[in-house]
């Protein structure tokens, strides 16, 4: 079975000298879910940016078996840590419909599909408001909706529960559990990782410290201590 995402020996440095991502390799299979765990500054977000080609890293990234290109990136949905970055249209409905409109779907049809997705996420009432008027939890869900609308086969989420209150985080976790595609979560929220993901990869100073099933990783307090996660 072809992997959805294959990353091999990824290396990156901001200044050309000190590597902040040091030979990271991992694989995500269809319908798999991987948590990239690490303390703040461990390189989780940088790793995601490198995977997406937003930072010029060395190494190999393959999406659905093919080298990463603009075309192959269309199979990938991304949710930033700060959803404000992603939602800039005058109405939430337009934000969510934009990827479909850009792919050539009729505007009305795109809006209908966007509305049904927003309804599923409990945001239909806010669809005519700008994202800036929503709560952070709602904005996070809206950013997920915008990423999901084009039916990606892989969804990358950067700190999805960061800055959320417990209730909003729980609600978001339930939404993530219901998603059918492969997931990669960069997070330091161990509870989220345990609930949503099957596998985990622990990063420390940009290098892989451990990889395995979530249960094995999270039930090893010595490892979590060394990774500065507890």
């Amino acid at each position: 079975m072809t992997s959805v995402l294959e990353v091999e020996n990824l290396r990156f440095s901001f200044d050309g000298r000190t590597e902040v991502i040091r030979g990271v390799s991992f694989e995500v299979r269809p319908a798999d879910s991987l948590a990239i765990l690490g303390a703040s500054g461990a390189g989780k977000s940088t790793l995601l940016w490198c995977v997406l080609g937003l930072l010029p890293a060395r190494g190999t990234v393959r999406i659905l078996g093919a080298p990463r290109t603009r075309a192959s990136l269309r199979h990938v949905g991304v949710v930033f840590q700060n959803p404000e970055d992603q939602l800039f249209m005058p109405r939430l409905l337009d934000d969510v419909a934009l990827p479909l409109i850009n792919r050539g779907v009729e505007v009305e049809q795109a809006r209908t599909r966007a509305l049904s997705l927003l309804e599923r996420l409990g945001l239909a009432g806010a669809c005519h408001r700008p994202a800036s008027q929503l709560s952070l939890g709602e904005r996070k869900k809206a950013a997920i909706a915008a990423a999901l609308i084009a039916s990606p086969q892989l969804l990358l989420l950067d700190e999805p529960t960061a800055e959320l209150d417990r209730r909003s985080a729980r609600s978001l976790t339930q939404e993530l559990l219901a998603l059918p595609m492969s997931l990669v979560l960069a997070t330091h929220d161990l509870e989220l990782a345990r609930t949503v993901c099957r596998r985990a990869l622990v990063l420390r100073s940009g290098a892989v410290m451990a990889e395995g099933t979530v249960c094995r990783i999270l039930d090893d307090p010595a490892l979590l201590e060394r990774a500065e996660l507890i």
Binding site: L54, R70, L73, R74, V78, F80, D85, Q86, F88, D95, L98, P99, I101, N102, R103, G104, V107, A146
Partner: peptide, 17 residues
């Protein structure tokens, strides 16, 4: 950040929207 968000939301340049 803004340009990055736009690139991800509307990856097909000069097309609809």
């Amino acid at each position: 950040r803004a340009l990055l968000a736009h690139r991800l939301a509307a990856p097909l340049r000069y097309r609809s929207g």
